[in-house]
Each structure stands twice: as C-alpha cells, then as structure tokens.
Design a protein around this nucleic acid. Structure first.
Lengths: 208, 208
DNA sequence: CTTCAATATGACGAATGATTCATGTTTCAG
DNA sequence: CTGAAACATGAATCATTCGTCATATTGAAG
C-alpha cells in the first residue's frame, strides 16, 4: 500500500452497468443480500468475496460481473441503507400532529429499525473507515432534512428558536448512540420508556 | 477465516512482558507513537506493521518483541485513549460550581481534545470493529462515571429527576457526533457558540 | 572485563484472499 | 430457430503482509 489516500478524490467510478436480463438482476440481488449479511456480521475486512458468493450460492468470478470490487458492493449497501432508513422514518413520522411528536416517533422508529437490521447498521458505521465519502453523504443527507424540519418548526413557533443545524446533529448523535447502546447491545430498558425519558429532557430541559 | 467470532470469549491474552530496560521502554514508546500516527491516519486494515516500524525507525522484527500482534498495539492505543480522555475531561471540569456548568465545560473540552488528536479519536471509533470488547469497555467506563455525576446532581436538586443512565448515553452520543461533525470535519461554527447553542437546548428544552 | 539476558535486525516462509481469464452456458431479439 | 450478447464458472494468478527465525549487538551486573 504505497499511497493510502485518506481523501480519495472522487474515484472516477466507471460504474458497472446494470444487468440487462431478469436472470442478471436476480443474481445481483442475491449478491447484495449475501453481502449485507456477511459484511454486516463479520465486518468488511473479515468478509471475503468467497464468503459472499458462497452464501449467495454463486461462483466467485460471477461477483465481478456485477461489482468492480469489494469496495463497490459496500458502497452500494451504504446507499441502500440510506434510502431504507429515510423511507422508514418518513413513514413513521408522516402524520404526526407537530414537530415534537414527529421527533419522538422518529427516534422510536429509528430504534426499531436498528434493532431489526443490525447488520445494515454496522455497515453504515464501518463506512466511516471503508468508504468515508459514502459515510459522510449518508449523514449529511440526513442532517439536511432534519435541519429543515427543525427550522420550519421554529418558524411555526412549535419549538424555541435556535441553530437548526447544530440541533440536528446533536439529535442525530443521540439517536445513533442510543441505538447502539439500547437496541444493539442487550438492554434492560424498554424502548418506549427510553424515548419518554429522552424527550422529557429534550422538551423541558434539565433545569429544575 | 473459518470462524469469524463476533463475540471472542476473552482471548486468554498471555501478555507480552513489559520491557526490562530503559532502551526497551524507549523502543516500545516509539512503536506506540508510530502506531497511533499510522493507524489513526490510514486505518487499521491499511496500516501494515512495516509502515509502523518504518515510521518508528525500527526493524520489523522488533515489533514482535513488544507486541504479539497488530491487534495488541491497537488495544493498547484504545486503553491509552481512554485514560487520556478521562484525565483531560476530569481536569477541565474539576472546579465547576455546579453540574450544568461542568457538563458545558466537559463538552467544550471534549471538542478541543478531539480537534487536537483526531488520530486517537479515529482509533477509538474503529475499535468498534477491530476490538469490540475494548470499544465497549471504553464507553461503558465513561458512561458509568457520567451517570453517577448526573444522579448525584439530581439528588442535590441541581437538575430535574430522570434516568441517569439514559441521560448519560444520550449526552455522550451528542458529544461524539458533534465532535466528529464540528471538530474533525471542517466547520464554520465556532466551538463556543456551538456549546452555547447545545446547552440552551439541554437546559431549557425545546418547548417554546 | 566477562558474560548473559535483553534487545535488535531484516530476510524469508507461508498464508491469504482479491481479481482475472479462458472457457462454457443461457437468454432473448429478430 | 438461431446466433450474438449476457451471464456463469472456478482454477490460476499475483500482490500483499503477517509473523518467524537465525544471527548480531548492547549494556549492565558481578
């Protein structure tokens, strides 16, 4: 590894073309699914292409018909995770009467999501080291939407004024860590109680 | 990798003995320092023993006099990071008049620390994948102290009652993510303003 | 000034695992 | 039905790097 570039300058990805056949699409799907399982369980470094193709029930070489490298599947997975999470949260929050309720439901939904797909969650976390740009994009995209919602709510007078971006990152950070601690590690704490507790602090503050 | 064990059951570490000589201690120190720099910059996987020893100005084989494996230096680094951070924060918070002030100063200090030693911070984050037990120990130790402080403050009436453990993890999560976003990535936001903003939310709550 | 344990060296053995490739097989448009 | 494009195969390639070892060197106790 002569040049380990921390800031890879837009890898100029030529993009493996999409499958042109039903069969091809199916194979690709199997690979993605297997990759999620394997990489999510044992981590990127420990997951070999052989592991992935074996799990998918497919020959090794076939992998390279659909992805240029191990890196590329990984990125694909991060992208997918982004879409899934955003969709899931959007649904959970869709008909909330106000922003604070929406936030509460959002956190609750996030915890459920993490508990149900720990593998995908691990992949996003590991992206910080395997695909920093994808990782950043994931959180930045999230934060943007989050901040917009908070700003709008402040405008409506639903919450006090304040820096929406800072708040967005602070809230996201809470969610991420709480998810890891109470949804992935074993937890004695009931998720609903957890959310209630957190929002007591967030809504009313810590001051007596 | 036949068995990729997510839960390694206490690796039965025979422990490389400490150096018996001044020279040995110096060499070990060089290696630790080099390892922090290299691993922190390029990540665990990309960092080779050769990179580390080269940076330390020492022969490859010498590495194995002081560490049994790449994993072992890494663990050492996580441990060190834990001690450093706790010491730094303890100092920063030492003579705060009350808990809320202490929290504020703690966050501010944490942001400075991260900004000054991003490599160490990266290592702790990566520990989630390289040395899960060390990672967990790091955060659990932190959270315990944090929760005790919060519980005490609640008892004193300095803050409202509430689940100290949940609060501790929520606050830690905020700090971690804010550190990454505003202290490691480029930031337009002034750290002091950031802290003020966050504590406005934490102390008074979001409700209008 | 010996002597031996501690420390240092760097070339090398061995394993690993990503990626390629030459060779089939399947699909589907026409 | 047919042939070209897609797709599939898995053995072979190839670069990388961990960790070992046989061989020095150092330094301090006696």
């Amino acid at each position: 590894m002569p040049e380990a570039s921390p800031n890879r300058p837009a890898p100029a990805r030529p993009r493996t073309p999409k499958p042109r056949t039903r069969r091809g699409q199916d194979t690709r799907d199997s690979l993605i699914k297997a990759a999620e399982a394997v990489i999510g369980e044992v981590g990127f470094a420990a997951a070999s292409i052989a592991d992935i193709t074996r799990r998918a029930g497919i020959a090794q070489g076939t992998f390279y018909i659909y992805f240029q490298s191990k890196d590329e599947v990984f990125r694909e997975l991060v992208l997918e995770m982004g879409k899934l999470t955003r969709g899931f949260l959007a649904d959970a929050v869709a008909d909330a009467p106000d922003r604070l309720t929406a936030e509460r439901r959002g956190l609750r939904a996030f915890l459920s999501f993490v508990a149900e797909r720990p593998a995908l969650y691990n992949i996003v976390m590991e992206a910080r080291f395997v695909a920093p740009d994808a990782y950043r994009a994931y959180y930045t995209t999230f934060a943007r939407g989050y901040a917009q919602n908070l700003a709008a709510a402040a405008r409506e007078g639903e919450i006090r004024d304040g820096d929406a971006e800072v708040r967005a990152w602070a809230l996201m950070g809470m969610a991420v860590t709480l998810g890891e601690r109470f949804a992935i590690w074993e937890s004695e704490v009931d998720p609903d109680a957890l959310v209630t507790e957190v929002f007591d602090m967030l809504e009313r503050g810590l001051k007596p």
